[in-house]
């Protein structure tokens, strides 16, 4: 086993374990902290994939912003859910069955695919020029439409979120 493989196994074990805890832990605040760990683990996986830029963005956006937002929401809605009782609803065995079925199905389909075990090509020297990526993102010949769509989405989400969360006067 190479070092990379060992690293990958460690990281993925962390990610999976943390993810399981997110789903299963009784205390919602702990679930949020487990989520932070899982997201960190994903950032490490990104780094293993030579996508160090996205590893950083992952930490910034998910750990820095989204997780913080979630913790805020938890604190705002605290005390309404009884932490001592079961945190899964009654239909959870069925849900588990569905998820296992999905996982099995996915792995089965993937295993039929002839490039499933392909190895990574060597990273070319210029494969990862962020300046070029930035230009491609904003140039009309590149991905401007996707970029603009994402910005519109963000704007709409922002407006919607503000409107929804705005405390109505008199309520």
């Amino acid at each position: 086993m190479s070092t990379a493989q060992i690293l990958f196994l460690i990281f993925s074990a962390v990610v999976v374990a943390a993810a399981v805890m997110v789903v299963l832990s009784r205390r919602i605040m702990r679930a949020a902290l487990w989520l932070v760990l899982a997201l960190f683990g994903v950032a490490l996986i990104f780094a293993l994939l030579d996508a160090s830029f996205f590893a950083v963005v992952q930490v910034l956006v998910y750990v820095g912003a989204i997780a913080t937002l979630l913790i805020f929401a938890i604190m705002l809605t605290r005390g309404v859910m009884d932490d001592s009782k079961a945190q899964l609803n009654r239909g959870w065995p069925f849900a588990l069955l569905v998820c296992l079925g999905l996982f099995g199905g996915l792995v089965y389909i993937l295993s039929q695919w002839n490039r499933f075990n392909s190895a990574a090509p060597a990273l070319p020297q210029d494969a990862y020029d962020l300046t070029l990526f930035g230009l491609a993102l904003t140039s009309p010949d590149g991905y401007l439409v996707a970029f603009e769509a994402a910005s519109v989405l963000l704007l709409a989400a922002m407006v919607g979120a503000i409107y929804l969360a705005l405390e109505k006067r008199g309520n």
Partner: peptide, 17 residues
């Protein structure tokens, strides 16, 4: 990871979770 997440979506009581 996807399936774990899906299980959480389907089975957790708390909507923040």
């Amino acid at each position: 990871l996807f399936c774990i997440g899906l299980f959480g979506v389907l089975a957790r009581k708390n909507s923040v979770a």
